[in-house]
């Protein structure tokens, strides 16, 4: 594919000469495979190794998060002895111990559900807020559009981690998964809303939208039944990548010290933060949770990437 002088190749739609007649040009070939956006995307995804690696890994992570007991019997927080402080691997403790003498492997396994729950809660929250606000703004237009988008601009003007730092430092004693998810998600919806809005602006020009309204469906019903399902594709992509971003954000907040309380929740960010003082003498305690965190984030970003390429013909052409 490496040409120094690329030439644009436009597909040419010319009827076969021997078929003859205009009917052959317009006819729908019944024997052709059924196809729509999602089927095309699935056919594209099916053949890509990056999709399968990330999908299998995500299934595995979800399994670890749901059933940590299958992987480790060692309690992450209650079985710590200072005699084991920073000790190396032992039978039953494959990755060694933290400074507090807790089992590193067990803490990583139990930290999975924290990261994943925060990621999922933030993603659902951001998707719902973004879809509803974006759809109303795009479909109804006018003053509602201007109003919602200006509000979005304001929320967009604050980097969401900084906002979360302020919110979390206001909740010193009652931090939990819901509060941190709210703190992250509350400022990250405008990106989703903007993308959905521009997609709705495209979709609402189609004939089936006019047909739906002509048949007597109310504007709100048309929006929910016909416009939204047809403009949701880009949101799926941004939500997958957003899940990765939310996991990173939770770890960053925990690392900074405004995340989840260390003694109740296992969080990779907390573990990395706690291990930093021994970076010179015992770097592996820091590196193991970092690998878990980065691999999880990588899996979701890879999934988002492959799905984006499958759904967006423009991205497919650049591959």
């Amino acid at each position: 594919m490496s040409r120094s002088n690329p030439v644009r190749q436009a597909p040419r739609y010319v009827a076969e000469v021997d078929e003859g007649g205009l009917g052959a040009v317009d006819a729908v070939r019944v024997s052709d495979r059924k196809s729509n956006l999602w089927l095309d995307a699935w056919r594209d995804l099916r053949g890509r190794w990056m999709f399968w690696i990330s999908a299998v890994f995500i299934v595995f992570i979800v399994f670890v998060a749901l059933f940590p007991g299958v992987f480790t019997q060692v309690p992450p927080n209650n079985d710590c002895y200072l005699a084991n402080s920073n000790a190396g691997p032992q039978p039953g403790h494959p990755l060694g111990f933290t400074k507090q003498g807790c089992d590193v492997f067990s803490r990583i396994v139990h930290g999975t559900s924290t990261s994943l729950s925060v990621g999922v809660i933030v993603t659902v929250m951001v998707a719902v807020m973004g879809i509803v606000l974006g759809a109303f703004a795009g479909y109804f237009g006018g003053w509602l559009d201007s109003f919602l988008m200006r509000i979005g601009d304001i929320f967009f003007a604050i980097p969401y981690i900084l906002a979360a730092v302020v919110i979390m430092s206001m909740f010193l004693h009652d931090r939990n998964i819901w509060i941190i998810a709210l703190a992250i998600g509350f400022f990250s919806w405008p990106a989703t809303a903007r993308i959905l809005r521009s997609e709705v602006l495209r979709v609402k020009q189609f004939d089936y939208v006019m047909a739906s309204e002509a048949l007597g469906l109310s504007k709100v019903r048309t929006m929910f039944l016909h416009v939204m399902p047809n403009s949701i594709a880009p949101v799926i992509v941004i939500s997958t990548v957003g899940l990765a971003a939310a996991i990173t954000a939770e770890a960053t907040l925990s690392f900074l010290g405004v995340g989840l309380p260390n003694n109740i929740y296992m969080s990779w960010g907390n573990d990395i933060s706690a291990a930093q003082v021994d970076l010179r003498t015992n770097p592996m305690t820091l590196i193991y949770p970092s690998i878990a965190l980065s691999a999880t984030v990588l899996a979701f970003i890879m999934l988002g990437e492959t799905v984006r390429e499958a759904l967006d013909p423009k991205a497919r052409a650049q591959r």
């Binding site: 770890a251 990395i272 010179r280 820091l286 590196i287 965190l293 980065s294 984030v297 990588l298 970003i301």
Partner: peptide
């Protein structure tokens, strides 16, 4: 670039500090 996008900044910072610095 895929790997760089997935690495949280503090992980990258520690790895760089440990590997190139120490």
């Amino acid at each position: 670039t895929l790997i760089l996008i997935s690495l949280p900044v503090f992980v990258l910072a520690f790895v760089a500090q440990w590997f190139f610095g120490i």
